[in-house]
């Protein structure tokens, strides 16, 4: 089966639907699938629910889909870098399911691994726990969180091959391997598609079985907080 495509638009052909749930990799602007986000902007798909740790920044990354009002709901842990996000949320235009960062990662991991729910201590005694099943194990209280299965996963890796195997670079890995597993369809954008057989099989981060479509993109890789040491 052919997995390689020539562009983000081609790779998304036939998989975008209004009202769908998309899981996106990336942390801040690091390791975000920037080409796929732009292609979704161009496609104009509406009423999206997006599970992503952050929502980009104003005018870049997922922030672009907020500006274009294509997002109905975000499932995120941190939105502090995005004024438009906060404005839409406080104005009641955008739904937000605040999900602790580790719970979000585990919801993706579990969803992709066929685990429909898991118990965690995270959020016990806070608003996050409201309405959720509580259960004690060894004298400690945990809450039930549900695995997340997305209609579509969009991820970004450093290198990939025609079999869909992915290798990430440094902290741009973040949510990408977890998001990749939880989509019914996973589309990956990479900086470089390398000949099959040249990635060391021992060092593949996401095995190709999780990746349905792959293409080589152009990455701006914008830096959010450019910080240098003195001297």
């Amino acid at each position: 089966m052919q997995k390689t495509y020539n562009s983000a638009a081609e790779a998304l052909d036939g998989v975008l639907l209004d009202g769908m749930l998309i899981a996106a990799g990336g942390f801040g602007l690091c390791g975000i699938p920037e080409n796929l986000i732009e292609a979704i902007l161009d496609a104009g798909t509406k009423n999206l629910t997006i599970a992503s740790n952050n929502a980009g920044v104003d005018g870049f990354g997922l922030g672009m889909l907020l500006d274009s009002k294509q997002v109905k709901k975000m499932i995120s842990s941190y939105v502090g870098e995005n004024d438009e996000f906060m404005r839409q949320y406080l104005a009641g235009e955008l739904e937000l399911e605040f999900t602790p960062q580790g719970t979000l990662a585990e919801r993706m991991r579990a969803g992709g691994a066929g685990i429909p729910g898991f118990y965690t201590k995270t959020g016990v005694g806070t608003v996050i726990a409201e309405g959720k099943e509580h259960k004690d194990f060894n004298g400690e209280t945990y809450i039930l969180e549900e695995g997340l299965v997305a209609d579509l996963s969009i991820v970004k890796a450093w290198k990939g091959d025609a079999a869909g195997n992915l290798v990430y670079r440094k902290t741009s890995r973040n949510f990408n391997p977890n998001a990749a597993t939880c989509g019914k369809v996973c589309v990956a954008e990479v900086e470089k598609i390398v000949p099959t057989g040249t990635l060391d099989p021992d060092l593949i981060h996401t095995p190709g079985i999780f990746v349905h479509r792959i293409f080589e993109g152009n990455h701006e890789k914008r830096i959010e907080q450019r910080t240098v040491r003195e001297g």
């Binding site: 942390f27 690091c30 990662a105 440094k170 902290t171 949510f175």
Partner: peptide
């Protein structure tokens, strides 16, 4: 400066010779 290497505050940082990288699920 490396755009692929940031801390949780989104600041650019560096690695050490002992450094390892992993997914968010492994991190938590």
């Amino acid at each position: 400066i490396d755009a692929d290497l940031i801390n949780a505050g989104k600041q650019t940082i560096t690695e050490l010779n002992r450094t390892s990288y992993f997914s968010s699920a492994d991190s938590f």
